[in-house]
């Protein structure tokens, strides 16, 4: 039993079978990578985990509770945070305000009408946000408009926002997609640091093998909607089945 258990999950879009009979178990405090060629069903699987899609069959259990049928905000309240392929942040707000929102959400739940206090008067929350900004090495950017930052900084902010809620499971959807090499390496370093410093489980979907092999404790290879193999990184590297799935029959 892992912290996240996916059992017999299938999902169909019309005639296309996006996922068929996926079984997956993510162990607590590990980094679990899900890789696979385009169209393997990685994103569909992720969307089933966070409540964006509901699978046709099967079950998804997080920490012994089913996530199926719950709205994304409820799943987040259970302790799953998601980082998107293109950073989803509050572009119109400042970096500091961006960081305050998840902290308020963690304390107050999905809705609370806090109209008496001011944002600045919530000293404890401000302190938490500032601490996270220092951890993320962004404190000097606190007054910047989030939309005006570089892609790497947006990603860093988004990860910081997720971490500020102290999630038990962090889901990353191609966190380095479209990034320059330097930004990619920075992100890898950041994720390594997070893994070393925090009690957190990370599930990561990634295209870039460099990222996967530098981070993952365990890798699941997905092809045509089903898990091909699940093993440790050093065994995946030489696996002929994986090479075939990635490079086609001729390889």
């Amino acid at each position: 039993m892992g912290i996240l258990d996916v059992k017999n999950v299938s999902k169909r879009f019309g005639g296309l079978k996006a996922l068929s009979d996926v079984n997956l178990s993510v162990k607590e405090n590990t980094v679990h990578a899900i890789i696979g060629p385009n169209g393997a069903g990685k994103s569909t699987l992720l969307n089933c985990l966070v409540g964006k899609l509901i699978p046709d069959t099967g079950s998804v259990m997080f920490d012994g509770q089913s996530v199926l049928g719950r709205a994304p905000y409820e799943i987040n309240q259970m302790g799953i945070s998601r980082v998107f392929q293109t950073p989803e942040i509050f572009g119109d707000l400042t970096v500091f305000e961006n960081m305050m929102i998840p902290i308020f959400a963690k304390r107050d739940g999905s809705f609370r009408m806090h109209a008496y206090e001011t944002v600045a008067s919530e000293a404890e929350m401000v302190e938490q946000a500032e601490k996270m900004l220092i951890d993320m090495n962004m404190i000097d950017k606190r007054h910047m408009h989030a939309a005006s930052m570089s892609r790497g900084d947006k990603r860093r902010l988004e990860i910081g926002m997720c971490l500020s809620q102290q999630p038990r499971l962090l889901l990353l959807d191609e966190p380095t997609a479209g990034m320059a090499r330097a930004d990619t390496n920075n992100t890898i370093d950041l994720l390594r640091q997070i893994k070393a410093e925090r009690d957190i489980t990370i599930a990561i979907i990634e295209h870039d093998m460099h990222v996967v092999f530098s981070l993952a404790d365990r890798i699941t290879v997905l092809a045509q909607g089903t898990p091909l193999v699940e093993d440790e990184p050093q065994n995946i590297r030489g696996n002929p089945k994986v090479r075939e799935a990635y490079l086609g029959e001729s390889a």
């Binding site: 905000y73 998107f84 929102i101 998840p102 109209a115 008496y116 944002v119």
Partner: peptide, 28 residues
């Protein structure tokens, strides 16, 4: 003014900015 400066006002501005992120931050 009080509403604008309150955490509630911040959430309302967040609605305008990015509802997707709000949902995935545990906010309804």
């Amino acid at each position: 003014i009080r509403i604008f400066r309150s955490p509630f006002g911040l959430m309302l501005r967040a609605v305008k900015s990015n509802q997707q992120r709000m949902n995935y931050t545990g906010l309804n």
